[in-house]
Computed example of a mutant assay.
Amino acid sequence: MKPSVRNKVSGIYLIQNLKNDRAYVGRSHDIPSRFASHISALVSGTHHNKHLQRDCKDYGINNFAFRILEVVDYARPSLNAYLTSLEEKYVLKFNAMHPQGYCERVADLNLSDTRLMTERIVCMDLRSDELFYAEAFSEAALYAQTTAGQVKKAVSSKSHYAKHHLFFFEHEFRDYVPEALEKKIKMGKYYSSVTST
């Protein structure tokens, strides 16, 4: 019998090696079931993540901690996009990307792009000239109601455009801002939001 939505716990979770602190961060609509799947695969030697599987074989399943990092309301609008955004933040927070950690990919994004780890993304809404500073591609996508892949393409394209927005890495933003807009920004005429974790 499948658990009802009421019994599910959706959010972000952590699997951490207690011997070397390497971490795996994931997201799920049903974390307890996801933990059971991870444990079953690790114990049977069939886990999809070869690095996590190898360490489980070397250290034993009892040397891994399974923790829920953040619970998210299952009924939240845009749940998948929000979970992806949170997952990226926690992957960075726990240094969970391979080779330091076990994660190789988060959703459809390759977080090995070092600029993502050190720079925010500036999102400019062309309809209102609002500015938003995002810590991850998926967070920018959530703000602009587009996909993280589209944001990533826009950031690296000449036009920087996707779905009524311009996207820049923070250090590139000033090179593209017209002088008049920069004056307005300095005068505080534009909304700016920095999210916190």
Score class of each variant (00 low, 15 high):
57 K>E: 08
179 E>R: 14
132 F>W: 03
193 S>H: 02
107 A>V: 12
107 A>G: 15
54 R>P: 00
61 I>V: 11
185 I>C: 00
81 A>F: 03
6 R>E: 04
16 Q>R: 15
37 S>C: 10
22 R>I: 03
137 F>S: 06
115 R>A: 07
112 S>P: 01
14 L>V: 06
28 S>I: 12
150 Q>G: 08
168 F>Y: 11
55 D>I: 07
169 F>K: 03
152 K>M: 15
45 G>D: 09
131 L>E: 00
87 E>L: 11
171 H>Q: 03
32 P>D: 08
185 I>G: 00
186 K>T: 01
85 S>H: 07
82 Y>M: 02
60 G>Q: 14
42 L>P: 03
44 S>W: 12
45 G>R: 12
159 S>Y: 13
116 L>I: 07
192 S>T: 00
21 D>I: 09
158 K>E: 11
76 R>Q: 01
130 E>C: 02
84 T>A: 13
42 L>R: 11
86 L>I: 04
196 S>C: 04
64 F>Q: 09
175 D>M: 06
161 Y>E: 10
44 S>Q: 14
92 L>Y: 07
116 L>Y: 07
66 F>W: 14
71 V>I: 05
135 E>V: 00
189 K>I: 00
14 L>W: 10
104 E>P: 04
95 N>V: 01
27 R>G: 08
197 T>Q: 08
59 Y>S: 05
57 K>C: 08
187 M>K: 10
197 T>G: 09
45 G>M: 13
3 P>Q: 10
165 H>F: 10
69 L>I: 13
102 Y>Q: 11
99 P>I: 06
64 F>M: 12
85 S>T: 05
94 F>E: 02
39 I>Y: 13
45 G>L: 14
145 Q>G: 01
17 N>V: 03
94 F>H: 14
39 I>C: 04
171 H>I: 01
185 I>W: 05
41 A>W: 05
123 C>G: 06
55 D>C: 06
38 H>E: 08
186 K>F: 04
50 K>L: 09
61 I>N: 02
189 K>H: 04
36 A>I: 10
72 V>P: 00
62 N>C: 10
183 K>Q: 04
52 L>G: 14
108 D>V: 09
89 K>M: 09
37 S>V: 09
12 I>A: 04
45 G>V: 13
80 N>T: 03
12 I>Q: 06
20 N>D: 07
186 K>H: 05
